[in-house]
């Protein structure tokens, strides 16, 4: 497996020289980072090049890096301790090559934090359709070129992007049946946010002197 990864990483460096932002191997997994403007030609080549041939897209995962490494938690929201460098939102693509029996992770950061925009890969892998709808729903990442970008998991008429780190765990509205109005109504949440076990980050090599 390790030699396969070495071959794969040299193939990738050869195929995308200049476009690779970083290519790292850790825990037997290879992670490629590319810029948002290069993503479509890169991913297309990853699928079609005979040495790469990633014919299956396993997963698209939205990411919000805003509270990475931070311990602050207020009212069920994770907040950054200090201003962060780098983009806030990213999409992580997990690719699988059935021909070569190898996996690759591709991470693409969306440049604008206020309005994260990435290209849709539905034309390359049709399975991306729902995965991108999910990332749009939960993180508010907009995928340009998606045929049908609607919310998928949250309620009809939901407001907000629930998996962003600054969205409270308990949500913002609760719903119940109101006997007087004889319909289901939405109200602001009544439960108090609480954190039983605080989040704590330890420095590297803690306890391993």
């Amino acid at each position: 497996m390790a030699t396969d990864l070495n071959i794969l990483s040299s193939n990738i460096n050869e195929a995308f020289s200049g476009k690779v932002v970083s290519l790292t191997e850790r825990l037997g997994e290879l992670t490629l980072v590319v810029n948002a403007r290069d993503m479509l030609p890169t991913l297309l080549r990853l699928r079609d090049d005979a040495d790469l041939r990633f014919e299956e897209l396993i997963d698209v995962c939205g990411m919000d890096y805003s509270a990475y490494g931070s311990e602050s938690c207020e009212e069920g929201k994770y907040l950054p301790d200090a201003p962060r460098e780098g983009s806030r939102f990213a999409a992580v693509y997990h690719l699988l090559s059935i021909t070569h029996n190898i996996r690759l992770r591709v991470r693409v950061f969306a440049e604008d934090d206020e309005m994260p925009i990435l290209d849709s890969v539905t034309a390359i892998w049709p399975v991306a359709n729902w995965f991108e709808r999910e990332a749009f729903d939960l993180y508010g990442i907009i995928f340009v070129g998606h045929p049908d970008l609607r919310r998928i998991l949250t309620d009809y008429g939901f407001v907000g992007n629930p998996f962003r780190k600054d969205f409270p765990l308990s949500g913002t509205v609760e719903m119940r049946y109101d006997a007087e109005q004889r319909r289901v109504i939405y109200e602001p949440v009544s439960i108090e946010p609480r954190e039983i076990t605080p989040r704590s980050v330890r420095e590297e090599n803690y306890g391993r002197s």
Partner: peptide, 17 residues
């Protein structure tokens, strides 16, 4: 069935997909 786990060194996962 896959779990994509990102940890930032805390006692809780940073992101689990």
């Amino acid at each position: 069935f896959g779990i994509y786990m990102v940890s930032d060194g805390a006692n809780k996962p940073y992101r689990m997909k």
